[in-house]
Amino acid sequence: MTLYGVGLGPGEADLVTVRGERVLESADVVYSPGRLSRSVATEYVPESNIGDLDFPMTRDPEELRTAWKEAACEVAPRAREGDVAFVTLGDPNVYSTFGHLRRTMDAFHPEVELEIVPGVSAVTAFTTALGVEIDAGAGLALKEASGGASPSGPDRMVLFKVTDAPATHEGLDAAGYDVTYGRRLYMEQGETVVTGDPEEVAERDYYTLAYAEKRGIEKDRATAGFDAETNTDPGEADGRTAETEEGSA
């Protein structure tokens, strides 16, 4: 049948997509890689339908490969007989644990059909939470900033895994960036924090991101041509409204 990679969104249960909800409710079994994704999935799936997969917190490549092969061996027989879902926070194809399972399934169980159900990603959700507007045509780079790393170069960056905000901030500030931090945005577990002070998010937390924007960059907005005091379009200053132009046609 089918293995579905289902994106649950950033963490609040009501941000799961309608398609994602349908897949979860119809799947024979739903696998979760951790307690946060499990807590969202249980809003749509009975506990008895959820299976856990154990993934070690290690960087050892051999240990990780073994864990993913074991996970694939667990999932494959179920997916051959029925519909199976693997849930992940965010989107299955953006910084997701699902990518490891998908590649392992492709290598050892290529007969299993696979389908991705996109989820709301922090890449887009952060803009509302942080009050940021990314203008049409503006460049936006996605970077990882774990361990105090301070990427630089692009005018605008979204930084993931900001696990040492003070160290990251020091480098970004020196490189000419203004930075806003967000922790556990749209997540029901833990305290949500939005701040420009890195000390407020100094404690290590995997779910901390940042938006960095170069100081003084020019922003070409169409609405910049509006007269802020009179709230009128400069083109109307001589009395040429849309109605008069239309009437003269």
Rank of each mutant, 00 (worst) to 15 (best):
M1H: 05
V6Q: 07
G7E: 09
G11C: 07
D14M: 13
V18F: 09
E21Q: 09
R22W: 12
E25W: 00
S26T: 15
D28A: 08
V29T: 10
V30T: 02
Y31I: 11
P33F: 01
P33H: 05
R35S: 11
A41N: 12
V45K: 00
E47S: 07
E47C: 11
I50D: 07
M57G: 08
M57I: 02
T58V: 11
R59S: 14
L64R: 11
R65A: 11
R65S: 04
T66L: 13
T66V: 14
A67P: 12
E70T: 13
C73P: 01
A76H: 06
A76D: 04
P77I: 15
E81G: 10
E81M: 09
D83G: 04
V84E: 07
V84R: 00
V84A: 02
G90K: 08
G90Q: 04
D91F: 03
V94M: 12
L101E: 03
M105A: 05
A107R: 14
E111Y: 00
E111I: 03
V112S: 10
I116G: 11
V120S: 10
S121W: 02
S121A: 13
F126W: 09
T127L: 08
A129D: 11
G131R: 06
V132I: 15
G137Q: 10
L140S: 03
A141D: 04
A141P: 00
A149L: 09
A149T: 04
A149M: 05
S150A: 12
S152Q: 15
P166C: 00
H169L: 09
G182T: 06
R183C: 02
R184G: 01
G190P: 06
E191Q: 10
E191G: 05
T192D: 02
T192F: 12
V193D: 08
V194G: 00
D197Y: 04
P198K: 06
R204I: 13
D205M: 06
T208W: 01
K214Q: 09
G216I: 13
I217H: 02
K219L: 15
T223I: 15
T223M: 15
G225P: 00
T230A: 01
T232I: 13
D233K: 00
P234F: 07
P234A: 09
D238F: 03
G239M: 03
R240F: 07
E243G: 11
E245V: 08
G247T: 05
